[in-house]
Design a binder for these strands. Structure first.
Length: 578
DNA sequence: GCCGTTTTCGGCCCGACTGTTTTCAGTCG
């Protein structure tokens, strides 16, 4: 997680440089380094020791040195020095939407304002209007910005954004003159949280679409609307940005608005070197301004000599290099998935019956579903005693006689404080599929939690470690574990690691999952469904898997039933032979 | 501050919207 801390620190350095009005390209270098570190999935410490930090894109000699300094001392002297050159509290001003470096500079130098409170008081006292270029409207905008900042600029998770996006798309598709519609932005890239919903439409008459949109029931407040784009807030308080382009530019606009920004910047740099120019209207020859594509997204990449890159990979985290070398992964898709694991029913804390789950699995074309209700210790979730577990196993065997989708006899077994499992091995041996998970003792030190997980993985019957870091977005931070050590043990013991598809969990997260996949660990997407409809959340988990560059061969769900049984059996055999 | 199938120096992505000083700087994505 050091890369995350460093990413934030470099971003702060960029803020300060920007406030001081320094070289824009130097600022950009810090921003790019920040972004790349935030999405970096490798082992920073190891790279530092091997002297490989400069292999990270955007990291040169200077920043490599700053990273080394931070990893060894926990500080960056240059940043501390920079902080002393700006008024205290000023960085907070820059957080206000609508306040950039120029405004902050003006406020600090002319009115000695350097905190949000001071700024608010000054607006209420109308002292801002004394500044050049400040009138009523601008004051109002800043007040609105402060309000948004206070609300915490909440990002919503994908589970909320996807249904809204589906409704928006249906609405837009029905408007007269609209020929194509798509999500864009972080939503299309399947980021785990979304700042605002980006939607793109193609129409020969964009202004009419914008008007219909801002007058629709989706809109409770218009933040801004021109002839080709509009930003609104829905009654639920979600910001939606709509762009409308001519059909011949749809591909270019889709590419452009899907981002990420870093991916696009790299793409345009590449274009310049090839004598081309990219924008949201198409791809053009720089010299003649002749347009050579833009109706389809593929054309944009093709013009640069690249294959189409799946949106989930567009984070400037190696996808352009892979595309150039013809080594893009064949990402896992829903049609590769043959089953789901970690399913709860009325036997513990789920709300639907075994039979209904079997039918729902068959309806999705699944070969199998692993039923994994809670184990005996987890009283509040109606964890099952051993006799009750055996009763459920008998029931499953009966259902399997007539079910198209096979139910696997499984359990979500608590990993107890010392790494011992909540059922004895003789009981685990009766099960087809054992999920191990931690539900208690989250506050143990890192070393102890890590040892606890590794001990569980050494158990021959444990197939899968569920939600390995235990995080709940907005509620509980991940508990501290040594991921590299856990993945090493997973690889050695033949234990799979879960990508839990529950929208608040998404655990492993994208970067951790990529680290696991690069370590050669088998992964599994499971929905942790507690009801029938939650089985659909598999697509959210697959989004994470795709962001982690996972191919079908690296995902347990893609094995046919026989192959799955073989994979589970291999670990049991090898462990018992020792 | 980074980076290289034009370059180890001299470049570095592009456009919409807003408010306003009415021609463009500032901010955002």
């Amino acid at each position: 997680m050091k890369q995350h801390e460093l990413g934030l620190l470099f971003d702060q350095m960029a803020d300060i440089l920007e406030y001081r009005g320094e070289n824009i390209f130097r600022i950009r270098a810090y921003r790019r380094a920040s972004q790349n570190l935030l999405s970096f999935s490798g082992d920073l410490e190891r790279m530092m020791q091997a002297g490989e930090l400069q292999e990270i894109s955007g990291i040169g000699p200077d920043l490599a040195e700053k990273i080394t300094e931070y990893l060894s001392t926990g500080r960056i002297a240059a940043l501390e020095k920079m902080r002393r050159t700006i008024p205290k509290g000023l960085l907070e001003l820059l957080e206000i939407p609508g306040v950039g470096p120029k405004t902050a500079q003006l406020l600090a130098q002319r009115l000695r304002i350097s905190t949000v409170q001071q700024l608010e008081a000054a607006i209420r006292a109308h002292t801002l209007s004394k500044l050049p270029g400040f009138q009523k409207k601008k004051e109002e905008n800043i007040l609105k910005g402060i309000e948004i900042l206070r609300k915490g600029r909440e990002r919503m998770h994908l589970g909320l954004a996807l249904p809204l996006a589906a409704q928006l798309i249906e609405f837009l598709r029905k408007l007269p003159g609209v020929t194509r519609v798509s999500t864009a932005g972080s939503l299309r890239r399947m980021r785990e949280t979304i700042g605002d919903c980006d939607v793109l439409a193609a129409s020969a008459r964009p202004a009419a679409v914008i008007e219909a949109f801002t007058k629709s029931h989706f809109c409770s407040r218009v933040l801004g609307a021109g002839t080709t784009k509009a930003s609104i807030v829905t009654p639920q308080g979600i910001q939606v940005d709509l762009r409308v382009v001519k059909p011949e530019s749809f591909g270019a606009a889709l590419q452009y608005f899907t981002g990420s920004k870093e991916h696009n910047v790299r793409l345009r740099e590449l274009a310049i070197r090839k004598g081309l120019k990219l924008n949201e209207y198409g791809v053009f020859r720089t010299r003649t301004n002749a347009r050579i594509g833009g109706r389809e997204e593929e054309e944009m990449y093709k013009a640069l000599g690249l294959p189409w890159i799946p949106p989930e990979l567009r984070e400037d985290s190696g996808e352009l290099e892979a595309a150039k070398a013809g080594r893009l992964p064949r990402l896992v898709e829903l049609r590769d998935v043959r089953g789901d694991f970690h399913i709860h029913t009325t036997w513990s804390d789920g709300s639907d019956e075994l039979e209904e789950m079997a039918k729902a699995g068959a309806a999705r074309g699944y070969e199998y579903l692993a039923i994994c209700d809670h184990s005996q210790s987890l009283k509040f979730a109606h964890g099952m005693s051993i006799p009750r577990l055996r009763q459920q196993m008998r029931k499953i065997q009966v259902i399997n006689r007539s079910s198209k989708c096979r139910l696997l006899m499984g359990s979500e077994v608590d990993i107890l404080a010392e790494g011992r499992m909540d059922y004895p091995d003789r009981v685990l041996a009766e099960l087809d599929f054992v999920v191990g998970s931690i539900h208690s003792g989250f506050t143990q030190p890192k070393a102890m939690l890590t040892r606890r997980l590794i001990t569980a993985m050494r158990n021959p019957y444990v197939t899968l470690i569920a939600h390995p870091t235990g995080r709940l977005m907005g509620q509980r931070d991940p508990y501290p574990i040594d991921l590299a050590a856990v993945f090493k043990a997973a690889k050695e013991t033949g234990t799979a690691m879960e990508i839990n598809a529950f929208p608040k969990r998404l655990d492993l997260c994208d970067t951790a999952a990529r680290q696991a996949q690069e370590s050669g660990v088998m992964l599994a997407v499971s929905t942790d469904s507690h009801s029938l409809d939650q089985l659909d959340q598999i697509s959210i988990g697959l989004g994470v898997a795709r962001r982690a560059w996972i191919e079908p061969s690296q995902l347990l769900n893609c094995l046919p039933l026989a192959g799955l049984r073989e994979w589970i059996g291999r670990k049991r055999d090898e462990a018992l032979r020792r």
